[in-house]
Write a protein that binds this DNA or RNA. Sequence first.
DNA 1: TACGATACGGAGGGCCCCACCACTTAGCAA
DNA 2: TTGCTAAGTGGTGGGGCCCTCCGTATCGTA
Lengths: 186, 186
Amino acid sequence: MTGQRADARRNYARILAVAEREVAAHGADASLERIARIAGVGSATVRRHFPGRRALLEAVFGERIAALGARAAELAEAADARAALLEWLAALTSYAASARGMADALVQDGLTDPEQVEDCSAKLATAVEPLVRRAAAAGALAADVTAADLLTLVTGIALATEHHPDPAAEARRLLDLVVAGVSPAR
Amino acid sequence: MTGQRADARRNYARILAVAEREVAAHGADASLERIARIAGVGSATVRRHFPGRRALLEAVFGERIAALGARAAELAEAADARAALLEWLAALTSYAASARGMADALVQDGLTDPEQVEDCSAKLATAVEPLVRRAAAAGALAADVTAADLLTLVTGIALATEHHPDPAAEARRLLDLVVAGVSPAR
DNA sequence: TACGATACGGAGGGCCCCACCACTTAGCAA
DNA sequence: TTGCTAAGTGGTGGGGCCCTCCGTATCGTA
């Protein structure tokens, strides 16, 4: 990062700022060309800084992912392990459902090789992992439920509710269903 | 349908056959142009028969959706209301997870106006509706769970598992989780 | 057989992604 | 301050896709 030239850093920042707006407006398949146009740079410059759409999405959502990671770290010390996990899941759901394109970003990088540490879903998985373990240890979670399972479920909910009139509300509703279990027998 | 010219019907059938293969191979965003090329017709002909990608997907998945509807009708008379519903959900999940593009087709037509009877998800919703009602009446389902909720969940699962190594297995696993509820307390 | 309606498909415009390449400029060293 | 050089830039062209228009071929019928 520091090794970059000043203009490169400036362009990076500008492109990223525009990309955030565009992705918010048009979802994961925002036009890279359009982003370049708005940012006032050539399209080649965009793809130099972000080779491929994935890279751009990861950059766009990077901060928020980091914030979710921090939240997880906080919650790892909460008294109630189950409540902590559920709160984090709710936070993730809320964000994934409202931030257009994030769910796509998550689902797309499922393929990437495990080396890819920049991977969004890998970061999130690492973040929840402790919460999941603690909840499982406390007997508040079925033993065979993994962090990846939970992320996949939340991602799926976000994807499926994306076209609803009020995605966030609907996603929240479904998350509650999933958590409570469909069956009323408890 | 009968009012169509013979060549029109022939082309329709050819296009649909090619479309099935292409969608299976490339998912919901298969190239319409490519389909036209393979079918040996002009691209305009494809969009004459199927105005928009949605229409084509609905045609592609129409038969299968009908089959699921029939299965629902059978299960509506099963002895165990809860088991019947779960079995149908499993069937839907299995198909949605293995048939590339179907989940997209379902999620996309959430927007369409209620008039649109050709709507895939509407058809499925109508099909499960009785199963859901019966299960709810038997106390085997939380009262506020709707047919649409269940469809959305299954769709989400299918979407989120699409890029996994074994989508069908993973989807099935997640469906079980959802059904059982994440929490072990029962 | 001849005619009218119906269906066809090619051409062209717009947008997009991607790769290449000649030019500019920032930053360093003399 | 002045040059030098590598890093960075953006324009351009190729390929694809989606979509619309419109002249033409074909079907079904009188």
